[in-house]
Design a protein around this nucleic acid. Structure first.
Lengths: 182, 182
DNA sequence: TATATTATCGAACAATGTGTTCGGTAATAA
DNA sequence: TTATTACCGAACACATTGTTCGATAATATA
């Protein structure tokens, strides 16, 4: 990849995340992005078809980083053991709290539905692949897809609630809440 | 209210719901609405400040109707008893199924975040007022706001899942699913 | 019924945002 | 050194928004 391309791409991503921390996705215009990134209009469209594609690629980068780093740290088999103190969900909360990458800024926004959708989709893959470890007695009789969707939704909603309430709870505490309602 | 105002308002609501059943809220333009409703542009803006306010007023009308009709049918005290065959949630599912083709179309859309937000907000009021009846032993130790939010979110997500999967389950069945994960 | 009010029309308008085009320039790769 | 290609910047057509204004017709009121 051409060095110029890399620079331009990075500048756009940087400008975009900066703007996302200040306002909702739907309120951001291409004009603002290119002004903040200091690139030409045609250049933006040479890289990204639309604003939505830009968000999608940003999400892929963020979530790929997030979930991959998690997998690296937890290659042992009790990742999803609810009682394990180092359950994957606790580590997800911790990663989100030590938010290097401004994910939480995006989660707390009002009209960032697309972002949540992408986040949930990736999370769902993770949960689905480990569903057997998450199942309890009471879950018998439920379709797998329903259960997986429910767990993913509950996690996303828990994070949203946590952020919207100012992150008053510790990571282990909010993880407890999550496992309690699951 | 002037008869002309009523007619115009109804025509706009009708056109709007028709369009909403065909495409996402964000893709609908004021131009389409007024063409479909056959009213002037200035007339539209005399009634609604923006597209968003139109959606808000439509939601208020729909949900007011939905929740009020439910309250009327169930003034007895075990509305929220999980085991009661006529629990409020079962009736909510039934109301949604006998849908006048409006609410469910909106719930299934991709980018109808605002709609879901309004729906959840009204649902939350209902749940919050009856939270004690919904609490189980396992819920002890959770903040009320967290629990109420979780129940409301789970209901919304359950409905969404149900609709997205083609409403293959019966109302009582999907209600069972809901109570199982709650 | 006569009169005053007011909702609507229709057409035009500025303002903003989107996505594209094109020739010129400069960085990069070969 | 030469060919390629990413970028600039300016302009462009187009769509959408929200407003304005005088004329018209439906409605309320007396």
């Amino acid at each position: 990849m051409d060095r110029r391309q890399r620079k331009t791409r990075d500048a756009i991503f940087k400008a975009f995340t900066e703007l996302l921390s200040k306002k909702d996705f739907s309120a951001i215009t291409v004009g603002e992005i290119i002004e903040c990134a200091d690139v030409g209009r045609a250049t933006f469209y040479a890289h990204f078809e639309t604003k939505e594609f830009l968000l999608k690629e940003l999400c892929e980068e963020l979530f790929c980083h997030l979930f991959d780093s998690m997998k690296g740290e937890h290659s042992h088999h009790h990742i999803f053991n609810c009682n394990a103190p180092d359950s994957a969900f606790l580590h997800l909360f911790e990663h989100l709290e030590n938010n290097d990458n401004k994910i939480l800024d995006l989660l707390s926004g009002e009209n960032n539905g697309l972002f949540l959708q992408y986040f949930k989709k990736d999370l769902l893959h993770l949960i689905y692949s480990q569903l057997d470890n998450l199942k309890t007695e009471k879950h018998k009789g439920l379709p797998q897809e329903f259960l997986a969707n429910h767990i993913a939704s509950t996690f996303v909603e828990t994070v949203k609630w946590w952020v919207d309430n100012g992150k008053q709870e510790s990571c282990s505490q909010i993880t407890d809440y999550f496992f309690t309602v699951i």
